[in-house]
Design a protein around this nucleic acid. Structure first.
Lengths: 187, 187
DNA sequence: TTTGATAACAAACATTTTGTTCTCTTTTAT
DNA sequence: ATAAAAGAGAACAAAATGTTTGTTATCAAA
């Protein structure tokens, strides 16, 4: 890929992230983005058809690493099922988030966080869904699997949001402990 | 209040709801709203400063009844604490939602649902927070109260969303049973 | 039932944003 | 060195926003 393309793409992403941290997505104009990124109008539209496409691309950029690494983790350790697993997938995810290479947490606690949360949740949902195949519960009441999957993934995402909004006072390990405490009893 | 004001207000709300069911909030223009509601441009801006204000007003309209009725419920029965309570607050809420006087569920499963979900969640959070005063847990691990409150309210809201997206196949009573199964073990 | 006040309307307006279309210049890969 | 690709800059139509102005319809109360 052309080095110029990489640069402008990165510049647009950076500008967009900066703006997102400042104000709501819907209030951000293409004009502001290209001013901040210091690229021409034509250039922007050469890269992204619309502002929505840019957002989608940013989401994919942000979560591709973190989710794929989580996927590897589930392949080797399983979700929470295998007690011998040295680290749960969730703890792994939380550690990744804390490192926060790409300011994900900032975006997750910004005004437009809903968009990212939805994307995050959908990714997680898929992840957990795959893990749940052929897994039977100990509990007596019959609960639909997709209900449980939805419960777990959304609980995790909302916990992350709660964490980010509270200035990340807890360590990933501590959070993981909390999460286990509310999730493991129902598995 | 002037009858004319009531009518136009209702017309704008109705038009807005219709449009929200069709397309994303951000794509809806004031022009479309006033065309659908069949009111003049000036009239719209006399009632609502911006589109965002309209959304906020709609949210307040939608949730005020349902939340206040839930509040009464907690005053008499408590959250889930009192075993003698004939009906949990959550079951009560679900029944209200199923009746769906104001198309709340349709909005909760539409493209812009995040906005309503956030509003719904904040209301619930407050509700549950108040219930949690002086309530101690049986579990051994120490979990912060606001973590638990957040977990419960967001779990409930996400369950409702899951329910609405799945065409409401379950009865409120059944849903309540599922919810108890995943929440009561941690109380 | 008249009357003063209020609400809605229609049309026009400047302004902003969007997305496109040019031409021209710079950079890249080979 | 050169052809191909990418960006800059300006200008454009179209659409949306929010405001203003003058006029008409409706209401509530005397």
């Amino acid at each position: 890929m052309d080095r110029r393309q990489q640069k402008t793409r990165a510049a647009i992403f950076a500008a967009f992230s900066t703006l997102l941290a400042e104000k709501n997505y819907s209030k951000i104009t293409v004009q502001e983005i290209i001013d901040t990124a210091n690229v021409g109008r034509t250039t922007f539209y050469a890269h992204f058809e619309t502002k929505d496409e840019l957002l989608k691309a940013l989401c994919e950029n942000l979560f591709s690493h973190i989710i794929s690494s989580a996927l590897d983790c589930t392949h080797t350790h399983g979700l929470y099922s295998e007690k011998s697993a040295p680290q749960s997938v969730f703890c792994h995810l939380l550690q990744h988030l804390q490192e926060d290479e790409h300011n994900i947490l900032e975006l997750l606690s910004c005004e437009s966080s809903e968009i990212f949360l939805r994307y995050f949740k959908d990714s997680l949902n898929e992840l957990i869904q795959n893990q749940f195949v052929n897994q039977n519960r100990k509990n007596n009441i019959e609960i639909p699997q997709d209900f449980l999957v939805n419960h777990i993934s959304s609980s995790f995402v909302e916990m992350v949001l709660w964490w980010a909004k509270g200035q990340k006072k807890q360590s990933p390990e501590q959070l993981d402990q909390y999460f286990r405490a509310v999730i493991e009893p129902i598995l």
